[in-house]
Design a protein around this nucleic acid. Structure first.
Length: 285
DNA sequence: CTACGTCACTAGGGTCCTAT
DNA sequence: ATAGGACCCTAGTGACGTAG
């Protein structure tokens, strides 16, 4: 099977909507991220090995394992150098998805699921991908249906609830997670770390230290990362000017935004837009 | 020992302005 | 739209103190 990517051309505003899906046989040590997503993602490892980093923890994954990515969480993952993983993924959103996952105890603190039938998971992933590739007016409905079956498979016979041996997340971890949520919800507004620390009930200095210790990023860098990832997505919308994109991600000054964008990605916003336009002339292929 | 606050210092983020 | 320079202020960080 060749590397594949398909988007849902008619995404509804339903409670559980599949937005895109894909398949890839990665190169050795291939890296994705660190990045923040504005939707949920589930990856199923079909073959090989890799590592997934989420909330400051590392998870080693192999065939049959799945990992979830939650909106607003900074994550990265990497294929094994000797046995790079082959995986498929589904992007989805909707308030029901959140609820379903938390009922299964699948959270940012417990993002990995093992021990489910690889055959069934692979089949459902394929069905979702095929329905997106067909791209007809029913694909949203069909993909959404298969997505429910997929989540039911993850729910499985035995719940994914915490085992006794595992330690619950500490107060500090919870505060850092709260700070991350705060940033991902407020990134489009002018944010001061002082304000954020105050609203979370901590001293600015202390919060910065905790944040860096748990995420590897300073709060300011993390905020910048969230903004830049979001800007990259918005730039794919041809109807938005650079100025509009800048103000949508919390930069009142588009000049300063351009500088930061170039510093972050190595090309200016307009260059980036031109490059992606050339590379991917039709958004839903 | 851990969690948190305070202080002082420094790097660089953010803004403004001008030029292209 | 982008680049570059100047300047001010904010954020990051290390060292140290305090409370439980």
């Amino acid at each position: 099977m060749r590397d594949t990517f398909a988007t849902n051309p008619y995404p509804s505003k339903g409670e559980l909507v599949v937005t895109f899906g894909g398949y890839a046989q990665t190169e050795p040590s291939h890296k994705a991220g660190p990045s923040v997503h504005d939707h949920m993602l589930v990856h199923l490892v079909l073959n090989g090995k890799g590592k997934y980093h989420c909330m400051g923890r590392e998870y080693k994954l192999a065939q049959g394992d799945s990992f979830f990515i939650f909106p607003g969480d900074l994550v990265h993952y990497e294929a094994d150098a000797d046995e790079p993983w082959e995986y498929c993924w589904i992007g989805f959103r909707g308030h029901a998805a959140d609820e379903m996952l938390s009922k299964m105890y699948i959270t940012a603190q417990r993002p990995v699921v093992s021990g489910r039938s690889l055959r069934k998971l692979r089949l459902l992933n394929n069905r979702i991908l095929q329905s997106l590739q067909r791209g007809d007016s029913n694909c949203d409905l069909i993909a959404g249906g298969y997505m429910r079956l997929l989540l039911a498979e993850y729910a499985g016979k035995k719940a994914n609830n915490p085992t006794e041996g595992e330690t619950p997340s500490t107060m500090i971890q919870q505060q850092v997670e709260q700070a991350i949520r705060w940033i991902t919800l407020q990134y489009y507004q002018p944010i001061s770390i002082e304000n954020m620390a105050q609203s979370l009930g901590y001293h600015r200095t202390h919060l910065s230290k905790m944040f860096k210790q748990h995420t590897g990023f300073s709060p300011m860098n993390y905020l910048l990362k969230v903004r830049m990832e979001r800007a990259k997505l918005l730039l794919q919308n041809e109807r938005l000017t650079v100025d509009q994109v800048a103000s949508s991600v919390g930069f009142p000054d588009s000049l300063y935004f351009s500088k930061q964008f170039k510093k972050w990605f190595g090309s200016s916003p307009t260059d980036y837009r031109n490059i992606t336009r050339k590379r991917d002339p039709s958004p839903c292929q």
